[in-house]
Design a protein around this nucleic acid. Sequence first.
DNA 1: GCCATATTGTCAGTATACTGTCAATTAAAT
DNA 2: ATTTAATTGACAGTATACTGACAATATGGC
Lengths: 170, 170
Amino acid sequence: MPSSKPTPVTMDAVYTAPGYLFRRMQQIAVALFIEECRSFDLTPVQYAALVTISTHPGIDATRLSAVIAFDRSTLGNVIERLQAKEFIVRKPAPEDKRVKLLYLTKAGAGVLNEIMPSVEKAQTRMLQPLKPADRKTLLSLLTQLVDLNNEASRVPLRAEDALEHLGRSG
Amino acid sequence: MPSSKPTPVTMDAVYTAPGYLFRRMQQIAVALFIEECRSFDLTPVQYAALVTISTHPGIDATRLSAVIAFDRSTLGNVIERLQAKEFIVRKPAPEDKRVKLLYLTKAGAGVLNEIMPSVEKAQTRMLQPLKPADRKTLLSLLTQLVDLNNEASRVPLRAEDALEHLGRSG
DNA sequence: GCCATATTGTCAGTATACTGTCAATTAAAT
DNA sequence: ATTTAATTGACAGTATACTGACAATATGGC
């Protein structure tokens, strides 16, 4: 017969779970980013979107979502905010009336250039407590893990999608 | 004079940043949790809260927030939802009219017992793609990093706070 | 050309997260 | 004891995230 004796629950069920640790590190990462970049009025997500629009001028929202693996619905609001701050502009695509193409404004390119050192500082700070060798190990394992689990999230990363707006066929 | 020549921005500014990788892993971790625990109507945060109330019956919201390092404001809504699902109850504290003490209901204890295997499965799955030795390494480094960066987040983990409701002096 | 299908942006709804504020209440200072 | 501080739960406001739906538009099969 199946034993229904309940295992005594301890806080280890939370503290040692990788999911909990990833959540904590995400909180910490965002906190450090916001702290270092306070003067630029850009969130981590907005920064990632801005970088991607910079490297892929004329990308549309759907492809942008695939390239940084952010939800399409979420990205709509992010784009709105970047547009409100006048860091990007949206232009209707001539060949497809559904699509709106994204471009950096001068202000957007400017803020991106200026914020870079602060972003670097935040990224450095979050791994700082580890020994240099451990930083490399963690980053390597984390990169592998994200890549190998790519399909597990709703919006898998599709870096190659970024090239489609340049006229490739899928 | 300072060179204002802008460094060409590449997607590496996003893809290799630890902050981005932590965000991706958090997304993936939540997605796997939700998938494995679909039948239980509990989110990762609600699960963590339930575990903590189980191991600390009679804890209040502020101490709960310190023990799992979740924001106090956020936790208010989480508690409301757990209460709506009748997994917990809130009782006013006799000695302090501000405080409401949290307790598991029978249904709460039941769901916690039943969900455990699915939670375990989700936690296992998210590290599965790595070799066993690498899983151990990553978990160890992650645990260290979260601990060493504890003060960087708005709500640092204060595990010892959990004992106060048992009558300690701070 | 027509029709089933897919894509795009958008929206409503729910659930974290954080900032800042507030009233009620308690504790501390003197 | 009275003023001052701090604490507690709550709230409003902003910003990710995901689900599921929708109209407008494109595309494919035929």
